[in-house]
Structure formats: structure tokens, C-alpha cells
Design a protein around this nucleic acid. Sequence first.
DNA 1: TCTTAAGTGTAAAGTATCTTACAAAAGGAT
DNA 2: ATCCTTTTGTAAGATACTTTACACTTAAGA
Lengths: 226, 226
Amino acid sequence: MAIQSKTAFLEHFPLFETLNPDEKLRLTQMVEVKIKPRYSYIYLPGETSDKIFFLSKGTVKIGTHSKDGKEIIKSVLHPTAMFGEMGIVGEEERQDFARAMGQEVHYCVLKVEDFKRLMRSNHQLSIKILMLIGNRLRRAENRLESLIFKDARTRIIDFLKDAADQRGRRVGFEMLVKHSLTQQDIANLTGTSRQTVTSVLNELRKSNLIYFNRKSILIRDMESLV
Amino acid sequence: MAIQSKTAFLEHFPLFETLNPDEKLRLTQMVEVKIKPRYSYIYLPGETSDKIFFLSKGTVKIGTHSKDGKEIIKSVLHPTAMFGEMGIVGEEERQDFARAMGQEVHYCVLKVEDFKRLMRSNHQLSIKILMLIGNRLRRAENRLESLIFKDARTRIIDFLKDAADQRGRRVGFEMLVKHSLTQQDIANLTGTSRQTVTSVLNELRKSNLIYFNRKSILIRDMESLV
DNA sequence: TCTTAAGTGTAAAGTATCTTACAAAAGGAT
DNA sequence: ATCCTTTTGTAAGATACTTTACACTTAAGA
């Protein structure tokens, strides 16, 4: 990929806004652009955490597997998100996997070492990264709370609300969330079983609080969904 | 407290190692030393997250309460630990409480604003904070995994191992952990009920894997405790 | 278009863990 | 020493959720 288009590429990431032209040039020189087919793994547990990634197209899920094959999805990422950032904060070896969901993914890769050097030269960038990791931490702790304090049904409803808040499109009073998650995925995101997800969703549909098909969920009224 | 003793005070915190004499002086000028009685709250949910704290004596627990009064303990801190650091990463208002456990606590306070200024002038410090938050994140995610993947018994045993690893003293082949936790506290740390903790601990004692009283736990053999 | 795999719907059985309940022990305070 | 509160021990009952099981539907590939 030509330097020029790489530059354009980087313009899309808010994280790099504060970089001066020189730093941007340096960044383009150390970045590598990649494309991978759907369902492919971008990294796997056990690999060295020496790279970070920036997603420009497609959807990526980050998660872990237990020994007996259960899965936790830690997050589902959309373009412009950074991932694999644990390498920046001292992780040696990946604990999680990153996997392309049902579409081809485009992303760029850079070495943690190079990125750290950039951080050293641009304090603003360091601060942004710190805030970003802080947000991750806040989200992880909230999830912990909801696992301990809330029952499965409530967690699934919370998931619906979060999804709508973060990625929903208003349609009148309703909220439409397009996604590429199976009900098993939703189960893995909420720490419940697939069957529980199915029955909660269907129950909500019967009560006319939501409508859904495989590709999207429509929340009829965010207020009444409790 | 005199500047001199404040300086001595700060020498104990590894976080401040990389500061040059001038920065150390600035730090002593912005730090405030405090003492609070046991069981008192250092901060409460809802307060503004504009201060950070460094514990020099006593034990502090960080946690949250659910609406119906259940408690999660997020961490139990010992001297030299920093806490309240969510203010550095963009938290506006405390979500957690910080509370002195069964002893008087000594700690120093400083304003997030001041600390951020210090971080700007010393990149090493920024990096250390970033690593620290990163560790917190890693721990939170591990806890998430153990909540979803493991049963109550295993989580309690994991707690015992962790406690021994982090704070245990070798006594021959055995590991002694002195603490100030009630079984209710252990329950709140592991996301289980108090009764479950009691019965698991007693069961382990019957199997001669551990011995315990109110103030300490002795792990007879770390290997065989699975 | 047909075939197959993946995803969804529904129900019944099983179970880990929480609740409720109460007694005993330990520790602090007077 | 005595009283009172907190903590610990133990058991039975209740229950939310998982597991198992199978049919049905949808999507994708040949």
C-alpha cells in the first residue's frame, strides 16, 4: 500500500489526531496494512503480545476459551477500534484471541515497540492510551458487578440496552441494532447459556418489547425495557 | 508534617523512584498526609474522583454495594499501594468505596490535577501508571473469567492460592497468610455466599489441606490444593 | 434445487449455590 | 466476669440456571 493511502487510512483514527505531520509520517512508515477473511484469527492465546492493531473494516471479537471449550466474549469491535493493546501495558503473551466475525476484516498492525516510541515523543498520545485502558478497566469492573449482582435475564436485557446505546440507530421511538451475533454469542457475552438467551429474547418479543431476526434487534421502547 | 518527613514518606513508594530531586520537592509540596480510624471510609460512591491516595499503613478495601446491600470487594490493599486512581483515567465520580479495615490507616492524598501535571513532566511516571492500570485490567479480566468458568469451590481455592502467593510467608513447606478478612469478606471477594465459604474452608481443613483461625490461614501444601 | 450445517425454539431433568434458619463460639465492651 | 455483638458452623429447602434432548428453520454451498 502506498504511503499516501496509508496516510489517508490513519486519518480515520481519532487516536492519531494529535500527531504532528512528522509523527504521522513516522507512523505510516511503521504501519502494515492487512486483510483477512471472515472467521480467521488475528491472534491466538500463547502468541507474543508484541503488536497492536487498528480495525478499519469488519467486526472482530475478542475473547477466551476455558479448558472445556466454553467461550467468553470480552468485546465485539467495530472499525476505528484499537485492539491487542495489552502488549502496551506489559502483557508478554496473549491470553485472548481476536477473531474476524462474519465479514472480511481490514486492519493495520504495528509493533508495540514502535508505538511506545511514538508515545514517548507525544505525551498526548500516552494520555489517550491511558484513558482508553482506563475505560476498558471501568467496563470490565462493571461487567464483574453485573455478573455478581444481576440475574441472567437482567444481564441479557442490559446487553440489549448497551448495544442500542452504543450502536443503535433511532427509528422513530424505536432503536434498531444491526449486528452479526448469534444467540450463542450473546450468551458468551453475558455469561449465560444459549437456551436462556433464546427464551429471554422470545419472552421479550411476546411482550412486544423487542422484535428481532438473525441480523438485527429492534427495541420498541428503551424506557419500558427493564 | 514537615517537608523532611514527607520526603522520607515518599521514599517508600516505588512509583516515585524515577522522580528527580526537583520533582520530588514539587511532590512533597502537593501531598497531604492523613490518618483515619479503622472502619472509616476514605471515599464513598458519588464523591468526585479528584484525588488519588497512597497507603502507607493499615489495610484498605475497595468495593461496591448493590442496591439490595450486597457487597463486592474489588481489592484489599496493603501499604505502598496506590488507590483511587480511576480519577487519573477519566472517572468523574467514584463508583467504589474505599474503607479502612480493622486497623487505623495512614495515607497521603494528592489532587489528580497535580499528579497529572507531574506525569506530563516525567514520562517514566506516565508509563508506570499505564502499567499499573494495565495490571488492574488484567486482574479484572481474570476475575471475570473465573466467575464464568469456575464453580464456587474452585474460586475460593483460587483465592487462597492467590493470597498465599501475594502475601504468604513460607514456613517450611507450608504457607502462612495473616489477614483481617472475615469469611463474609472472602465471600464478597469470590462472588459466593458466606455459608459456602465456611463449608469449603471446613472441608479443606478436614482433608488436612489447610488450617485456619480468624486471623490467619495456613496452607499445608500449595501443590495438593487443587 | 437439493443437501448439509448452523442457528433457533421449546421442554424436562438435574444441580450447584443461595436462602433461611438457628445454634455455638469468639471477641469487645462495661 | 458478664453481656452483647460479630463471626462461624451446620443443615434443609428453595430456585435460577444449566444441561440434555430433539425438532424446526434458515442460510450457505454443491
